[in-house]
């Protein structure tokens, strides 16, 4: 593999995650199944280990831990947003037709990498009243179902996501 100098830490992390998944899914802890898991996880890590966690990033273990912690924190906030979104959908579903004001808004984001944009698009889809339709470069095409939720797209989520990665 002479594509990119991914650090050995990358491969170790990918291998660990795959092995954990193997143990959970197989559920057998004897030597035969564990050795099968070791072989297949090593093969997958060798072939595509640089796909899972951004290739070539030379971050130390401590930075990654901080990132993971912030990401989990963000996930908690996102879960609460999903609950709010469902309450909003529930209300709208039983609301009279005049309560719906569906329209398209555009949002320019300052995030650059694909992973950040993916997170942003998924988060916008899961938060109240908005669904990401398309991404053109740094413009997001968002379908909002009423005015209040359209006003909620104001860059706060961009800041939260940027905070994870920096």
């Amino acid at each position: 593999m002479e594509k990119k100098p991914s650090s050995s830490l990358d491969y170790a992390l990918v291998f660990g995650a795959l092995m954990l998944l193997w143990v959970i899914l197989s559920g057998k802890l004897d030597a035969f199944h564990l050795s099968l898991g070791l072989i297949s996880c090593a093969a997958v890590t060798w072939m595509s280990g640089d796909l899972l966690i951004g290739a070539g990033s030379s971050l130390g273990l401590a930075r990654r831990m901080v990132r993971l912690f912030r990401f989990l924190n963000y996930l908690l906030w996102l879960t609460w947003q999903i609950v709010l979104a469902n309450i909003a959908v529930f209300k709208l579903a039983f609301a009279p037709r005049t309560a719906w004001q569906p329209h398209i808004v555009w949002h320019r984001t300052a995030l650059t990498t694909d992973l950040e944009k993916f997170l942003l698009a998924n988060s916008i889809t899961l938060t109240p009243g908005t669904v990401t339709v398309r991404i053109f470069g740094d413009m997001l095409c968002i379908h909002a179902i009423d005015d209040v939720s359209a006003a909620g797209i104001n860059g706060e989520m961009d800041r939260r996501i940027a905070h994870i990665f920096e």
Binding site: I82, V83, A85, N86, V89, F90, L92, A93, R97, W100, P102, T125, L126, G129, V131, V133, H143, I145
Partner: peptide
Amino acid sequence: RFPDFFSRMHAAGKGDTLS
């Protein structure tokens, strides 16, 4: 009940996920 495809995506995407 929702009037168009994109509004239905709101119901399908969010309600389905959380439930």
